[in-house]
Nucleic acid binder design. Structure first.
Lengths: 301, 301
DNA sequence: TTTATTAGTGCGTATAATGCACGAATGCAG
DNA sequence: CTGCATTCGTGCATTATACGCACTAATAAA
């Protein structure tokens, strides 16, 4: 029984065919086929019913998979733990982050981080869905907003604050709103959120919250696209500060309502960093978490 | 990382030296030495401090060992479980069968079968369409009639013979037909079949085939419903023997033309049992196929 | 000091793995 | 209904790997 065959089997269960697994591993499909066949010989049981175009796992495969997968992960984890005891930061760190945040807040920091730890490879998995850290073998994940409960270790990187902004061109044409109620007369770029109405919340320095109904003809569920629209002068946008930093710094956008905190949902969104709660935290994970923590402490988002 | 290297490592931790492990495995000591060295390369950490006459496990080895050992045991156990599923009658058997056949010919046998194999769960998928065994993860399928070609293993359970019958009440009112041609004057219960005209075929003991045009006002594409109509005295019905057994035995129906073979299509219909593959045939599939085979051999349908 | 045993290393051979090409099967698009 | 493309499996030639043997260095016990 080959360990590689077991890993291939697990991936075949995930992908549902041999060819994709072969491509992912850079080997010939026949190799995968032979590995699985060898495994079946070892088990004395058929794992997949094959028709040329479809693989169907047998009951034996399902049983084997559900017990094998945790064991393989444990071996991998044990290997990492043993290695990290005597090794410096090395290997590959798999980071999962939302697309917009990765592009504007992580990628700019990568050169410095990579220079700090030349032995460490970085695998940035960009995805806006909530990935399963264990399933995808993610070491560290960035999550925005409020946090669903889980058995992961969570650390709050920074408070996430929002700002209303528009392009100078737009403000010249339509005027600069002075108080929150003024935005009712403006085009707003809408980010549809399930469970929330089309209101923006403004909290003044005294803590008073004002809710203003907004209107607009453009609605996009992608904050990077909303940013582009705002820069193009299509209206007011409510966006998180980490996404605006560049555009504000270069003057392509102009922030409004400096005296207010603004939000579309509530006022306690944050940037979270998550990692699996392992008894032995790999060095690479620790240094990455510490690095981001430092960065966001000294240069708050 | 080789699975065998991991197993060797565990044993080295137990024995405390390479030579004994090598002897226990019937390999050369140099082989063990090389396996451990490869493992150390994979981990990036030294596992043993070697002095020619003594091995001292490092801290990394201790950490690795304590997590590796349960994982290896789990893999071995998972392998045994998957294999046992093949060799022992356990798990769940998914059977696909046409509704009428399932109700009258399979369900009555289930109590006995279930008692024979108490560890086996049974999932009876009743469907009159031709399901894709792989797609639906079906272990065994029952098919009636003639068989479309496929890459499945097919076994003929029994010849399927048809009989013309009617209720005693109906025969009292309308008279008992003596020769095939007599049925032209009777109400017949029609089962519409694509590609076949409304004729019934009679083959006498001499092999002579007679085709008789039938007529009737009731047409139902459901043999169980036709059975009910016949029992209710609504006409003559041409039905497969396995569907009639009960009604004939209790006298609710009476068979006609004992000296003829009858059919609505051709004379070589059969009950087929199909399963996906012959290699690594799970025990649960084998016992079910054998059980039905025995049942239909001793008590022909 | 001698002896016996152990780990590590070259080296040649034997076994195993791999890729490629080909064939059969099958789902999909036109 | 018919090509078209993709997928899995197998035979074959090639390549890579693993293995044992012989030998060296080292060390604990006699």
């Amino acid at each position: 029984m080959q360990l590689e065959s077991l890993q291939l089997f697990v991936e075949v269960m995930r992908y549902g065919n041999f060819a994709d697994v072969a491509r992912a591993h850079g080997v010939a499909p026949s190799s995968v086929s032979r590995s699985i066949a060898a495994l079946e010989r070892d088990l004395g049981a058929r794992l997949f019913q094959r028709s040329t175009r479809r693989l169907t796992p047998t009951e034996a495969a399902a049983v084997f998979y559900h017990r094998l997968q945790p064991a393989l992960r444990e071996i991998e984890s044990a290997r990492a733990a043993a290695g990290d005891l005597q090794r410096e930061v090395s290997g590959t760190l798999r980071v999962s982050a939302p697309a917009a945040f990765a592009n504007s807040a992580i990628v700019p920091l990568l050169p410095e981080f990579a220079a700090l730890y030349p032995q460490l490879g970085l695998d940035l998995e960009i995805s806006d869905r909530f990935v399963d850290l264990l399933e995808e073998r993610i070491d560290v994940a960035i999550r925005l907003g409020s946090l669903p409960d889980s058995n992961l270790v969570a650390r709050r990187l920074a408070q996430m604050s929002f700002q209303v902004c528009a392009s100078p061109d737009y403000l010249r044409r339509r005027g600069v709103p002075q108080v929150p109620a003024d935005i009712a007369a403006h085009d707003c770029l809408l980010f549809p959120r399930v469970g929330y109405d089309l209101d923006w919340l403004f909290r003044d320095s005294g803590g008073e919250v004002e809710k203003v109904r907004i209107e607009g003809r453009i609605q996009i569920a992608n904050s990077a696209a909303i940013l582009s629209c705002a820069i193009a002068g299509m209206g007011l946008a409510l966006l998180p500060d980490w996404l605006l930093r560049d555009a504000l710094a270069t003057g392509r956008l102009q922030a409004l309502f400096a005296d207010y905190e603004v939000s579309a949902t509530d006022f306690d969104s944050a940037v979270w960093i998550l990692y699996p709660s392992r008894s032995y935290l790999p060095q690479k994970t620790r240094v990455f978490v510490d690095f981001l923590g430092e960065r966001y402490a000294t240069r708050p988002a």
